[in-house]
Structure formats: structure tokens, C-alpha cells
Design a protein around this nucleic acid. Sequence first.
DNA 1: TAACTTGTTTTTGTATGAAATGTTTATCAG
DNA 2: CTGATAAACATTTCATACAAAAACAAGTTA
Lengths: 219, 219
Amino acid sequence: MKRSNAQRLRDALEDDIINGRRTPGERLDPDALCQEFGVSRTPVREAIQQLVASGLVTVVPKRGTFVARVGIDELIEMFEVMAELEGMCGRLAARRITETELEALRQAYERCEAAAEAGDTDDYYYENEAFHDCIYSASHNGFLASEVRQLKQRLKPYRRLQLQVRQRLTSSLEEHREIVAAIEAGEAGNAEQALREHVLIQGERFSDFVSSVRRFNFL
Amino acid sequence: MKRSNAQRLRDALEDDIINGRRTPGERLDPDALCQEFGVSRTPVREAIQQLVASGLVTVVPKRGTFVARVGIDELIEMFEVMAELEGMCGRLAARRITETELEALRQAYERCEAAAEAGDTDDYYYENEAFHDCIYSASHNGFLASEVRQLKQRLKPYRRLQLQVRQRLTSSLEEHREIVAAIEAGEAGNAEQALREHVLIQGERFSDFVSSVRRFNFL
DNA sequence: TAACTTGTTTTTGTATGAAATGTTTATCAG
DNA sequence: CTGATAAACATTTCATACAAAAACAAGTTA
């Protein structure tokens, strides 16, 4: 299937934003994008509208369009919701996970372990993502899973600043272990709580971090 | 502030869909909309895209665009998430509500009561909405509040079929009473549970209802 | 200096035609 | 009647042109 220009543009911009090649607050000049991608204003407009809908971009009327800059308080609010939804995924997964899904989860955990032992934070970031994704799927609530993924997407531009906190990596892995144990045992309440705290801690560490170093121009 | 044609169109369509003037599965013909609103294809396209983003409309490529028809299983999934989020609002509200907000909540409850005594289901529907909205605001998590509102919006086309269940109205009111009591007392856990169940019951009643009368062409 | 005016530039919203792409329908051979 | 093929049709996507609204800049006046 062939993707339209607008789609490709949307994906490219999304990728740029998520991976920090375009930082929050940065201006997106429509005309520049037209030239850059060799298309007319229509598809650019469309792509931008989609990004606005997903919360990654904001347009200030008659001033211009910018990569969304999420304030620290809203960021905390978002983490609060993220924690709740992840916790819910854990609770449901503990009840509903299948044997094959459980096996996949164990393997994802082991890959996290390997990355942690190797001290490869980039790889850990990636495997961590896969680990959580296993849990989303195992919740057997597709709507929930897609909402969580979208919210995670929206938080990603700010995630680069995480996990760099000292010792966070090993304790994160330990939390993963507990989460797997709770889900394996079918302990819904424990799984929910473990996951919720796992995310909340990230949020807290995160806000500690950013409030200590506010020199980043985009916060 | 002056709203654009696309905006007005979007609002009009949204209103039509939410209030059942356009039922799920119904076709939306772009050309017809152009004529109906006396505008060109561009703003129509834009409005439709926004509605797609909010989940109220789906476009099947090269087949046409339709009012979103949410399957019964996805509907249940959405209720599951709705219950969780409302519960979360209740939990936070129990901790964070201010005195004036609490007063507003009590008054909202009383208006529900009045509508219930009068047996006016339309009015109850409206006041019920206001009641829940008080709780969203009182959670003091603006992001959470807006997400819940959006999800509720998305469920609205199917809500017409609710609360018509016998006796649901009085038990709903009783549940409201418990919710207010828990929030007043600052009992976060109780508020969360009461609200979650309040919503889940709606969901269950709802799915009971629709699975008994599947003659509705849009389910 | 501050406010006001005016002219210019940007941004936004809209219309419209044309090309690309996929779907449906009609036709016809087997 | 069945299935393939082609013609007709619908839709989606895109480019381009134009108009209106707001921001901006500069010069003017009080």
C-alpha cells in the first residue's frame, strides 16, 4: 500500500519530534517544510493538523506552529494518568494473560536484563519499551493499549532526560522483576500497584531532574 | 473570536452525531455537505479529518466516510477504560477538592435529585453530566479531565440507549449519594471504587440491553 | 515617550481543477 | 452461469490561486 505525502510527512515530523531532532518550542515553518519535502501547502497543512490532534504540535493562531511545549505541571499530570493506565494494564494482564504472552513477557524481561548487565542504556530504553508493550497487549483491551501507547508517544520527547539518573537502571530492572512475578502469579492488585509505582517513580525522578536543571530552554 | 467554516462544520457534525441525528454507520457524503453548508471541499475535508482524529467518524479508503460504528466489544473496552478514569478522578477529587468545589458538587447532586423526583430523564441526563463534570474538575488534573471528557464524548452516540433501563435512574442517584459522601469524607479509596462501579454498571446494563435488542442496525 | 495611523508582510482559510488510485459495473468469452 | 477484462465512476490527494485577517514595522502626531 502506498502512503500519501501527508502521511509520510506526518511520520517524518513525528519521528523528528520524538527523537529530539526537533525540540519542544521549536518553530515549524510550513513554507520551509514545503520546500524541504518538495510538496505544496496542502499536504503540509494536513500533516500538521494531524500532529496537533495527537498533541505533538501546537499552533498559536496567526503566530505560527511549534513543536508542542508541555509545561512541567501538565507533564506531571500526564505522568499521573500514565501511571494509572499502566497500572490498569498490569491488573488486567495479571488476569487475562495467555501462556504464550507470558513467555514473551519473560523473554522481554530477559532482554532488559541483558541490556542492563551490558550497561547499554540505549538498548535498555528500547527493550524496556518492548517489555511494557507486552503488558499492554496482554491486557486484552485493545482500546486501552492504543490509548496508553499514544500517551507514551506524547511523553517521548521528554524521555531522553530520564533513566540517566544514577542507579535508576538497576532499580528499574528490579521493578520489572516484581511486575513479572505478580503477573505470573495472577496477583492483579500487586501487578497494578507495582506498575503504577514503577511509572510514578519515573515521573518523580523526572520532575526532580528537570526542576534541578531548568536551563533547558524548552522546559 | 471568529470561527472558521471548517470549525463550524466540525461542531455541527459533532453535535449531529452525538445527539443521534446522524447514526453510527450512516454515510457522510462530502459533496452533499458542501452543498448543505455552502462551502467548498477543503473545509469539509478538514472538518472530517478532525472528527476522524477524535474517533467520531471513520473513513474507509476509497469507499467513503461514515459515522463511526463502534463494535460491541470495543464499546465494552471503552467502558472499562472510562470506569478506570472516572474512578481515578474520584480518588483525586477526594484528596484535592476545595470547599467551593464541594459546594458545587452538592448542588449538582441536588439538581440530579430534583430531576429524578420529577422523573424527567432528559433533564437527569443533563444534570448527571454536570455532576460528573464537577468531579473531573475537582481532580485538579486538567489533562485527566480533558481525556475523560473526550472519551465520554466518543461514547455519547450510544448513550441514548442507556438509563432507559427500568429503575436505573433511582439507583444511579443512590450511587451519586455515596460518591458525594466518600468525597466529602476524603475517603479516596471509597470514592474511586464507588465511581468505578457506577460507570461499570452503566456499561454492563448497557451491554445487556444492546445484546438483547440487536435489531438496531448500527450495532 | 506614547499612542495612533498606515502600509507591508505573514499566516490562514477557501475554492477549484487536475492527476492518481481504487471500486464498481458492464461486457463478453468460455 | 462463471470468471476475466475493460470501461465508467468515485474518492483521494495534491497543486495552485486568491482573499481576508491579523501581526508587524515605521513613520507621524500629540
